[in-house]
Amino acid sequence: MASIKSKQREQYNINNMTMNIETKIEIDIKKDISDMICLMDGRVIVVEMRGKVNLFASDGKLQKQLPVPGEPFSVTQINQNTIAITYSGERAIKIFNMENETVTKVITLDKECYGLSFSNNSLAVGVRTDEIRIIDLEGNTLKSMQLPLQIASCLANLVYCNDRVTYSDYYGKAVYCVDESGKQIWQYKQGLSQPEGLCTDPYGNIIVTDYNSHRIIVISKDGQDSKLLISEEDELEYPRCICFKHNESSGFICDENGTYLAKFNLSS
């Protein structure tokens, strides 16, 4: 009975889900954006691809650039004061203390690393184009998922949640979900033009930015259903990254060129 109720709840949230853009805040980064997260305290980090790590207040005002050396790519939050950032050129993940503004640890890998996500006290990191690696905070490899060769793009966008990893392949125009052994749970290819940023809602459904079509789509956590949340008519140009506020149904969307932060509310 519990599984039926949870299934009904999931379908209800997909079918009745709506996204509203509350405000669209102009920001002045104007550089290629590779990642963005909402911190637990409501602030937002926007990462310039191999550039600066920008910290914004919850109202979208730029506070500072974090003093993290190197050329960053992806970011995730570990706890209230700690984030982790990938540096593909250095083949490294740097653990950064937000309070002291210092790098406390550098995890060195044997290959280039891109997308990054934290869950269950472990990091999931996209390695080149064909591997997702689960590592602990000391850098020890816990699991390695070898992916099919159809993945043409680097593993730049992934979410690690509930013992599964969901990632987008913008060249292949698809979103995939795999378990921790690398076995494919589902794939979604219906009408995607260039899926990039993604995040999970409180029910485990996947919210995806479809860059070229200027759309935001939700995919049910079983990969069977989807719904258009934001269309091209909503004038959200080239959405690149999306993230939820901690334990909330609202969050932010950022475009690829760092010209706006759009605050959204999700209701179901």
Rank of each mutant, 00 (worst) to 15 (best):
residue 25 I to H: 09
residue 187 Q to T: 15
residue 245 K to F: 06
residue 11 Q to F: 04
residue 49 M to V: 04
residue 185 I to Q: 14
residue 23 T to G: 04
residue 206 I to E: 15
residue 81 N to H: 10
residue 214 H to Q: 09
residue 247 N to D: 07
residue 254 C to T: 15
residue 239 P to A: 06
residue 91 R to I: 00
residue 35 D to P: 05
residue 205 N to T: 04
residue 140 N to Q: 15
residue 40 M to N: 11
residue 224 Q to C: 06
residue 42 G to S: 08
residue 190 Q to N: 11
residue 14 I to E: 11
residue 76 T to N: 09
residue 90 E to L: 03
residue 73 F to R: 06
residue 262 A to I: 09
residue 229 L to N: 05
residue 172 G to Q: 03
residue 33 I to H: 00
residue 206 I to M: 02
residue 144 S to I: 10
residue 194 Q to I: 07
residue 218 V to M: 07
residue 56 F to A: 13
residue 9 R to A: 14
residue 250 S to A: 02
residue 98 M to F: 08
residue 141 T to G: 05
residue 197 G to E: 00
residue 162 N to V: 01
residue 65 Q to G: 10
residue 157 N to C: 11
residue 122 S to C: 07
residue 257 N to E: 14
residue 78 I to Y: 02
residue 169 D to G: 11
residue 129 T to I: 02
residue 169 D to V: 07
residue 211 Y to L: 12
residue 235 E to T: 08
residue 105 K to W: 01
residue 77 Q to A: 00
residue 17 M to T: 08
residue 176 Y to S: 09
residue 178 V to G: 15
residue 48 E to F: 11
residue 20 N to T: 15
residue 88 S to N: 09
residue 134 I to T: 07
residue 155 L to C: 05
residue 257 N to V: 06
residue 191 G to R: 11
residue 234 D to C: 13
residue 226 S to G: 15
residue 217 I to N: 08
residue 101 E to P: 05
residue 225 D to T: 13
residue 225 D to E: 14
residue 227 K to C: 08
residue 216 I to R: 01
residue 21 I to A: 14
residue 262 A to N: 02
residue 161 C to P: 08
residue 102 T to P: 01
residue 37 I to S: 02
residue 206 I to Y: 08
residue 11 Q to A: 13
residue 116 L to F: 01
residue 165 V to G: 03
residue 205 N to V: 01
residue 267 S to D: 13
residue 192 L to S: 06
residue 109 L to A: 04
residue 144 S to Y: 02
residue 102 T to L: 04
residue 154 C to W: 04
residue 14 I to H: 12
residue 241 C to F: 00
residue 260 Y to S: 14
residue 1 M to E: 06
residue 164 R to D: 14
residue 240 R to E: 14
residue 88 S to L: 04
residue 262 A to C: 11
residue 62 L to R: 07
residue 7 K to D: 15
residue 215 R to W: 05
residue 133 R to V: 11
residue 266 L to E: 05
residue 33 I to S: 00
residue 37 I to D: 00
residue 159 V to M: 03
residue 106 V to G: 01
residue 79 N to I: 06
residue 38 C to R: 07
residue 162 N to I: 02
residue 202 P to H: 07
residue 215 R to C: 09
residue 228 L to S: 04
residue 103 V to R: 03
residue 184 Q to P: 15
residue 14 I to R: 14
residue 208 V to Q: 10
residue 2 A to V: 08
residue 193 S to P: 04
residue 5 K to E: 06
residue 158 L to E: 05
residue 201 D to T: 00
residue 147 L to Q: 02
residue 238 Y to A: 12
residue 61 K to R: 12
residue 72 P to Q: 04
